[in-house]
Design a protein around this nucleic acid. Structure first.
Lengths: 354, 354
DNA sequence: ATGAAAGCGCTAACAC
DNA sequence: GTGTTAGCGCTTTCAT
């Protein structure tokens, strides 16, 4: 393979336009202090020659790398891909992230890192050293990891934390999980349910707690709070099944259940089928992920729609905006989630025919 | 934002190990001609300091960029993401591509390009100039695009073409669509079907033709070929619906239909429901994508499982293997697809009770 | 087998 | 406003 060189470099443009390298650089980077006439002359040469700066060289020159790194949980991401169940957190992140990066001339690079690994620090440092990204997007469950956020801050890298409210550096963005859970709970309360079970996600995800909070606060406001109605899973199907069994085994089992993700909701639906509980006649169900698997279930399930693409878009925009300026806004950004009503919720049996 | 420098560079390692830059470089790149004793000394310093080379600097030095570019169709990819229907071509590509890149110390960068655009050449050149990728993965419908493959070849970039058999440079990989279609058709023939309809994909995808070929050859071998049983769609739901309508409107309509992707199959299923045709009792159905939406349909649909992750893995491996050596193997690589039997195929009505 | 020097394409800092 | 100079971190010559 021949030593591949840049086809057309800044030098060629400079020569063609009859100006210095620096002037070309200024035009490319839209720096101030170039005469309009000069600018258009240089721009003409750029267009004519089809010049595009090398991001490697730009990085070497000491400026930006035009790279943004998205950090995802290795185990979960790979498991989702392999399972082929339609979980599209990753895709929605790409949708928001890639397109927004492209708008700014940036590229998004994905990196999978082990949450539970003790060499997570080494992994991250290696990625930073190799790529020198201008910004990093942290997704759950990394978003609140003090090791990660302190390391990023120490390196002066602009970064966003999706789904974390933990104090500390970094742009925080949430999808208002508490409010989403509250809305879901209130929907069930309005239908007449009072025994509304909740299947929480694992504690390593901050949002697991918020969702519980939202459910609890709505239940308390209605005067029907009951700690027995809370079960905990780890987002897996098996754990959802176990949690649902726990809830349905109660002396007075719930007439409705909200589960913190699609797999656990599906497990609950399946368990209901096994127990000859009709959904929604005997048991109402709400999922916290609006994946295809949920929409195609029988019945199609009412679900919280999380604005993952939108929140990622905002993450990228804020990261890039923060590159020039210094500090990071201390107030978290909230992008609201929606409740998508389908056919898995109805009035409880005792309310029928009223 | 402060001018960010590499924390630990090759210089630091050289100083720490008491050798020259060049020796460190040789050790990092596993070059030959370094005494084992020297090598381990340098390696010790590398580990101690946590040195990781900057890919920007590596590229600038004139060597590899350690970047592989995956080129996907912009319109279709974004449409799939937005639709949230569980289409996971992209995810499977990432699964195979990212992980395999990582094994070799490479990164995968995704680029979306417009197929139908006349400035596709400009877009590609810009991406190449900016990123200087060592390799490119072409996915359908780009894989056979002469503009693209000639441009890549001219730039001396190692590249793989997934789903194309068009003559020309580049590593060709296919999932044996013809054979897959044949297997699906034979399965239906064995059940006793003779009027097996086929809904083809758009002609801009080479694999559309192969699938038709596979179907036709199986039909001919069974002596039941009939050109009327072929309809053409564009992979969209609407086009699938129209194609299915065309087939079912035949004087003697098919008793089984194979559709070239999940959306068109789903459209056919829905049309069957509308017409009060039971699946599989009145109409057997086979899909060419094994997406969640297909598995969750009622009934769950028999489908061709395409080894997208595996083929992408091989694409990356071959690209990287070709970097050192020169030429590209002229013979296409074939990764077999599978037929996943579910509940949408049965014997045709006239065979019942035999 | 190892080291020294030159240069990749670009930007920052400074001069004009 | 514009040009000049000096690196950035690495790899490639080419010496030794």
């Amino acid at each position: 393979m021949a030593r591949r060189r840049q086809a057309v470099t800044i030098k060629h443009v400079a020569a063609d336009a009859g100006v210095s390298l620096q002037t070309v650089s200024r035009v490319v980077n839209k720096d101030t202090g170039v005469r309009p006439e000069m600018m258009s002359r240089v721009q003409a040469s750029i267009d004519k020659l089809g010049y595009v700066p090398s991001i490697a060289a730009q990085r070497m020159g000491g400026s930006r790398s035009y790279l943004i790194l998205a950090l995802n949980d290795r185990e979960r991401t790979i498991a989702d891909w392999r399972a082929r169940q339609g979980t599209d957190w990753f895709d929605q992140m790409m949708l928001g992230g890639m397109l927004t990066c492209a708008e700014h001339g940036y590229r998004l690079i994905v990196e999978l890192v082990d949450t539970h690994s003790d060499h997570i620090e080494r992994e991250l440092l290696a990625a930073i050293a190799a790529l020198q990204p201008d910004g990093v997007i942290l997704t759950p469950p990394h978003s609140g990891n003090p090791l990660i956020i302190n390391l990023l801050a120490a390196h002066g890298i602009s970064f966003a934390r999706i789904g974390s409210l933990t104090e500390g550096p970094g742009i925080r963005l949430i999808m208002d999980d508490a409010r989403a859970a509250r809305i879901a709970t209130e929907h069930l309360l309005e239908l007449g349910h009072t025994r509304i079970g909740f299947i929480a996600g694992p504690a390593e995800y901050e949002l697991s707690g918020w969702r519980v909070d939202g459910w609890r606060s709505a239940m308390e406001a209605a005067g029907v709070a009951n700690a027995d109605l809370l079960a905990v899973g780890d987002f897996s199907y098996a754990s959802g099944r176990a949690a649902a069994e726990q809830l349905l085994a109660l002396p007075t089992p719930p007439t409705a259940i909200i589960a913190s993700n699609d797999q656990m909701t599906l497990a609950t639906l399946e368990l209901a089928r096994t127990r000859n509980l009709a959904v929604p006649a005997d048991l109402s169900l709400i999922s916290f992920d609006d994946t295809p698997i949920i929409r195609l279930a029988h019945p199609p399930l009412t679900a919280i729609v999380q604005p993952i693409a939108e929140v990622t878009t905002q993450a990228v925009n804020r990261i890039i905006a923060d590159l020039g300026a210094h500090p990071t806004s201390p107030t978290p950004i909230t992008v609201p989630a929606l409740l998508s009503l389908r056919s898995s919720t109805a009035r409880p049996r005792e309310f029928r025919g009223r």
